[in-house]
């Protein structure tokens, strides 16, 4: 299941939904808000999503992961709204009979979500400036 969350992600709570007697391995990934990007100090950021298409594309990625890897369950949750340094921006959890498929599917899901799902990140810098990541020309040297 792929979802967008306007409120903080609680991994302990979410991972319970992955409990399954056929699962012998569990792998997860958390993306955290970092205090710097490309050499610039970041104070906070905002995520914006085109919700219906983000959820549809996210579900498609989870379906692809289920087809490519021998997994039991997979969940991905992405935050939207205003986030502070250290907050969880994205969470992926995968269960499988064995660790290889769990690691591989987890990596596949986060890589594809970052590349394809219509979610945008606006960073607010220590300088007072802000910018949409990947959308703006790099700052002048």
């Amino acid at each position: 299941m792929f979802s967008l969350s306007p409120s903080p992600i609680d991994p302990a709570n979410v991972m319970e939904r992955l409990n399954h007697p056929a699962a012998g391995a569990y792998a997860s990934f958390e993306g955290w808000v970092r205090n710097h990007n490309e050499g610039r100090p970041v104070m906070r950021l905002e995520y914006e999503a085109y919700a219906p298409v983000a959820v549809k594309e996210g579900e498609l990625i989870l379906d692809e992961a289920r087809r490519k890897f021998a997994i039991v369950g997979a969940i991905c949750i992405h935050r939207v709204g205003a986030l502070e340094i250290g907050d969880i921006a994205v969470w992926v959890g995968v269960t499988a009979a064995h660790r290889g498929a769990a690691f591989d599917a987890c990596r596949y899901i986060i890589d594809e979500v970052k590349a394809r799902v219509p979610i945008w990140k606006k960073e607010h810098y220590a300088s007072g400036n802000s910018g949409w990541v990947n959308c703006e020309a790099p700052p002048p040297d």
Partner: peptide, 10 residues
């Protein structure tokens, strides 16, 4: 119609 700027999730 929605034009999708370069995405930056994660």
């Amino acid at each position: 119609i929605v034009f999708i700027p370069p995405v930056a999730g994660g």
